[in-house]
Amino acid sequence: MSAKRKRIWRNDLVALVFLLPFTVLYMVFTIYPVIQGLYMSLFKWGLMGKQDFIGADNYTRFLGDKFFWGALWNTTKFVLYSTPTIILMSLGLALLANRRSPLKRLYRAAYFTPNLLSVSVISFLAIYILQPYGMGFISNLLKTLGVQEEIFFLKDPQLVWVSIVGTTAWWTCGYNMMLYISALQDIPDQLYEAAAIDGASPSKQLWSITLPLLKPTTLLILLLQLIASFKVFAQIRLITNGGPGHATRPLIQYIYQAAFEKNRLGYAAAMSYALFLILVVLSLIQLKATREGDR
């Protein structure tokens, strides 16, 4: 009895040693900021620190702040536009790069390459490619081909979303493509062979075998994309800085500006909780979905 007790204690101690380094960091930099944020959100809080206790004022204030809702709507728009675009493009690229072809490895590497670039690099590339008046790549190409019309990719309220979503898709599709490819490789060849014997055409095989079997992967990518897209900030900040006007300013940029440009850290912390809420709900769905996927 006492030997068993001793062993339990010993195990606890060993586990503690192994867990301690991570747990400390996790508490300080992941869990504690959540609590700190909640605390801050109850105050008027400047860059130089705590000012006045104002209770729930920050919360009631942002609920009535039309620029908050505007920014949240922009983020939502980005999610709505980018998620299907990225999923369809990734799937297309995966199907292309998973065919029997001598250039298979090259395709995969090429499609994945943009994923490796830093967000600053892809943002500047986007700006330089989209500039009008013969200064950008596309404009220059159109001029070379004899098209005189100018396209204002970053000024037109619709085109600016096309530009941002297009850039993001170009940048991130490679990753999801790889997820699809690994799922494609898990589909047993026998299924296709059997279908071929039954006389099913390649396109029929695609619709009746491949796509249905990719459903779990699509669900996974969908959720990962939703979560990632709600956090969108860096590329929009660098490409349009939220413009023209506030047409593309996402929620995180608004939070960032409130905190570090307008010195309202408390207000920013309160708004973060709206984003937090959205992300928690999505993460819970994801956890549930992956758990069901495991079964």
């Binding site: 037109d156 309220p157 939220g242 413009g243 023209p244 006007g245 506030h246 047409a247 440009e261």
Partner: peptide, 19 residues
């Protein structure tokens, strides 16, 4: 400066034809 920023953003949106 924040006010200047706000004015600029709204002028941008106006000149871009969004308002």
């Amino acid at each position: 400066y924040p006010i200047r920023g706000a004015m600029m953003q709204q002028i941008d949106a106006f000149l871009a034809g969004n308002q």
